[in-house]
Design a protein around this nucleic acid. Structure first.
Length: 601
RNA sequence: GGUGGCAUAGCUCAGCUGGAUAGAGCACCUGCCUUCUAAGCAGGCGGUCCUAGGUUCGAAUCCUAGUGCCAUCACCA
C-alpha cells in the first residue's frame, strides 16, 4: 500500500479516537523543503468536522500518529500544517521493492480494449516541417505513454494523398521537370515534389499578373489562369481513373512516401498502419445514406446533406456536397468506422491534430455519437498549439518553414560542436561519435518540444539555438551517462547490488539514510503515478518535467555525497544501487518521450 | 459579431483534484575541477501570477465581467 493510503487510515483513526468524528478524506501534500518532515497533512479541511484551533488539532493528531504508528518517527505543526517525519527504513524498504525492476513505472498487464493513436497525417505535396515535428513527437510519445500505462496501442496516420494540391505538383513536374527523379537529382522524393509545388505557385502567380495586365480583376484572374484550370482538369481525370494521370500520381506519391519514411526514421517514430484518403474517402458516404434514413442527417432541396447540430450549441454542418461528392467530414466519418472494422479490439481513438481544427473534431465526435457507435464516446482530440516563428506563422509558399530534415541535422551539428569543445570522447570511433551526436541533437530537439504543455503554442526562434544546459534533453542524457560511468567503475554486479542493498535495510541502524538519498527515493516513488497522470492527460510534458526534477535531485546527490568513496561497503553498494535505479527510471521516462540515452557523452 | 484556447521573473517554461514566504532553466553576479564526467553543483539578483469583482478559513488555480493575442465559424482540408 502506498504511504499516503496507509497514513490516511491512521489519520482517520486518530480523528475518530480523539474527536469522535468521521473524516471522508485526508488531504496530503509533500512537505516543503524549509520544514522538517516528509509528508504533510493539511488540517484546515478537517475543521468542517472537527471544531477547534487547527494548530492544536494538528498537534493532537501528530502525537497520536507518533504514539501509534511505527512508520512515524516524529512530527511538527506549523499553522494548520502537520508535517510528519517518516522512518528512513520505510524508504529503504520501498527502494528494495523497486530496485530490480527494469520496467519500473510501467504496467505490463494490458487492458482488453486497445487505443488507436493517429498522428502526422501529412499532405503529399511538400516535405515535413517543424509543425509536423511537433505533431509527430507528441503523437508518438502519447502512444508510448498509453502503452506504459497499460493499454494496447496502434499507431496510425491518414495520408492526405488526393486532391488539387498533389495535382499542382504533378502538373508542374510534367511541364518543367524534364523527367527529373529523386535518383537523378539526388534529392529526397518529398523535397523534389515540394519543389514542383513551389514551381506551380510561381507559374500561377505569373499567369495572374499577365491576366491582370490584360484587364481582368485579380479575383477573376485567380480563378482563370490556364495552369490552375489545367490542374483542376487533372483532378477530374484522376477521379475518372485516367491511366496516365493515375500512373503519374502513383509515381510521385511514391517518391514522397520514401522521403517521409526517411524523415520518420531519422526522428525515430513508427506506425502500425497507414490509411490513405484516396482509399477511404468514399467509405463515409455509405454511413451518410444510413444516417439519412435514421434521421441523423437531413437533405436540402439542392441535394446536399447536412447534420443539424444547433441543439447541441453548434451549427449545421455539411456532410455531402450537392453534387454528391465527399467533404473532409465525410471521409473522417468513414475512416473512423473503417478503423474499428479493421481493429475490433479498439475501444477509443486519439487524434493528434493542431488546435485550428478543434471545431472540426467536436463536430466529428458528435456526429459519430449520433450515428450510434459506442466507441464514439472514447474519442479524444489531442489538440496542440501552433509552432510559430518570431516572424509569425510558417508559410511554405513564402519559404519561411523550418524544414524537419534540416532541423534534425542542425541539432546534431550543434551537439558535435559542443562535444568537440568538451573533448571527452577522443577514444570514440567516428561512427560512434556520429551516433552520439544524433542522439544528443535529437534529445535536445525532442525534449524542447515535449516539455511544454501540448495546448500551448511554441515560439521557435531558429537564430537562438536550442539550449543544451539546464532544463534540456542533453542535461538529462548527461546525468544518465554519468550514472553509467559510476556503474562501470563500481565493478559491482547485479547480485551484489541486490543483496547488499537488502542487507542495508536489515542493518539500518548502522547507516542512516542521507537527506539526498531519501529525497531521491521519494522522487522515484512518484514515477508510476506520473505515467498514469500523463496518460490520462495525454501530456508528455508531465513526464519531461518529472524527469528533470529527478535528475536535478540526482545531480545534487552526486555532487554532495561520495558514491564510490562511501564510508562503508554497505553505503557504497546502496548508493550505487540507488544510482542504477535512477538511471533506469531516466531511461524509462525518456523511452516514452522517444528519446535515447547514451552510455557516455 | 458567435464560439474555443492562451495570458506567471528581461526571455523560455513548471505550478497535480484550491493550501504554508509563487518555483525551475536561460541571461546577469559570487564561489566550487589534485577525489565518481563542470553539458555539473552551491548561492545571489529578479514577480501588480493581464485587470476588476465574486465564492471561502484560504485563490496563480474555481466563477463572472473586461482587456490583449491566437484559432475557428466554407458545398477547403
Amino acid at each position: 500500500m502506498k504511504l499516503q493510503d496507509t497514513l490516511e487510515l491512521y489519520v482517520k483513526a486518530a480523528v475518530k479516537a480523539l474527536f469522535q468524528s468521521e473524516l471522508e478524506s485526508v488531504e496530503f501534500q509533500a512537505t516543503r523543503k524549509e520544514f522538517a518532515g516528509d509528508i504533510t497533512v493539511v488540517v484546515f479541511p478537517m475543521l468542517r468536522v472537527v471544531k477547534g484551533n487547527p494548530a492544536v488539532i494538528g498537534e493532537q493528531i501528530g502525537q497520536y500518529l507518533e504514539d501509534n504508528v511505527d512508520l512515524v518517527k516524529g512530527y511538527n505543526v506549523v499553522k494548520g500544517f502537520l508535517n510528519v517525519e517518516i522512518e528512513g527504513s520505510y524508504y529503504v524498504d520501498f527502494f528494495n521493492t523497486i530496485k530490480d525492476q527494469n520496467t519500473y513505472g510501467f504496467i505490463e498487464d494490458k487492458d482488453d480494449k486497445a487505443v488507436m493513436v493517429e498522428y502526422s497525417s501529412p499532405n503529399t505535396n511538400k516535405p515535413l516541417h517543424l509543425g509536423h515535428v511537433r505533431n509527430v513527437l507528441l503523437g508518438y510519445s502519447v502512444a508510448e505513454i498509453l502503452k506504459a500505462s497499460g493499454k494496447n496501442v496502434y499507431k496510425t496516420q491518414i495520408i492526405n494523398d488526393r486532391g488539387i494540391h498533389i495535382c499542382k505538383s504533378m502538373l508542374a513536374w510534367q511541364r518543367f521537370g524534364n523527367g527529373e527523379t529523386p535518383k537523378s537529382t539526388e534529392l529526397k522524393g518529398d523535397k523534389l515534389v515540394g519543389n514542383y509545388y513551389v514551381e506551380f505557385d510561381k507559374a500561377y502567380k505569373k499567369e495572374i499578373t499577365e491576366l491582370v495586365s490584360q484587364g481582368q480583376s485579380e479575383e477573376e484572374a485567380k480563378k482563370n489562369t490556364p495552369i490552375l484550370l489545367e490542374a483542376q482538369e487533372m483532378l477530374r481525370q484522376w477521379e475518372a481513373g485516367d491511366k496516365d494521370v493515375v500512373a503519374l500520381w502513383e509515381k510521385m506519391n511514391g517518391w514522397v512516401y520514401d522521403g517521409f519514411e526517411e524523415t520518420y526514421k531519422a526522428i525515430g517514430v513508427d506506425f502500425d498502419k497507414y490509411y490513405y484518403e484516396s482509399q477511404t474517402y468514399l467509405l463515409g458516404k455509405e454511413f451518410i445514406a444510413e444516417g439519412l434514413k435514421t434521421g441523423v442527417f437531413e437533405q436540402d432541396p439542392d441535394g446536399s446533406v447536412w447534420c443539424d447540430l444547433t441543439k447541441d450549441g453548434l451549427d449545421r454542418k455539411i456532410v455531402l456536397r450537392a453534387d454528391g461528392t465527399a467533404v473532409y467530414m465525410t471521409q473522417d466519418i468513414g475512416t473512423a468506422i473503417q478503423r474499428i472494422k479493421d481493429y475490433p479490439d479498439v475501444g477509443g481513438m486519439v487524434y493528434t491534430v493542431g488546435n485550428e481544427q478543434d471545431y472540426h473534431f467536436k463536430v466529428l465526435f458528435l456526429i459519430l455519437q449520433k450515428l450510434g457507435f459506442d466507441w464514439a464516446k472514447n474519442l479524444y482530440h489531442l489538440s496542440y498549439g501552433m509552432v510559430d516563428l518570431p516572424s509569425g506563422k510558417m508559410k511554405s509558399r513564402e519559404g519561411t518553414v523550418v524544414d524537419a530534415d534540416d532541423l534534425i541535422q542542425e541539432m546534431a551539428d550543434t551537439a558535435e560542436d559542443i562535444s568537440k569543445e568538451l573533448g571527452k570522447l577522443d577514444d570514440y570511433s567516428e561512427d560512434e561519435k556520429k551516433v552520439l551526436y544524433k542522439t544528443i541533437g535529437l534529445g535536445a530537439l525532442k525534449y524542447y518540444i515535449l516539455k511544454v504543455d501540448p495546448k500551448k503554442r511554441i515560439l521557435f526562434d531558429p537564430k537562438e539555438s536550442i539550449d543544451f544546459q539546464g532544463n534540456t534533453g542533453p542535461f538529462i542524457q548527461y546525468t544518465y551517462a554519468r550514472i553509467q560511468s559510476i556503474l562501470r567503475k563500481s565493478n559491482l554486479n547485479d547480485d551484489v547490488l541486490l543483496s547488499t542493498a537488502t542487507a542495508l535495510s536489515i542493518n539500518f541502524d548502522e547507516v542512516s539514510l542521507h537527506e539526498k538519498e531519501k529525497q531521491l527515493i521519494k522522487q522515484l516513488e512518484q514515477f508510476p503515478e506520473v505515467i498514469q497522470n500523463a496518460a490520462e492527460q495525454h501530456s508528455p510534458a508531465l513526464v519531461a518535467n518529472y524527469t528533470y526534477d529527478l535528475v536535478k535531485d540526482f545531480n545534487s546527490f552526486y555532487q554532495n555525497v561520495s558514491i564510490l568513496g562511501a564510508d562503508s561497503e554497505h553505503e557504497k553498494v546502496f548508493r550505487v544501487a540507488l544510482s542504477k535505479s535512477v538511471g533506469q527510471t531516466i531511461k524509462n521516462a525518456f523511452s516514452v518521450l522517444g528519446i535515447d540515452v547514451p552510455e557516455r557523452m
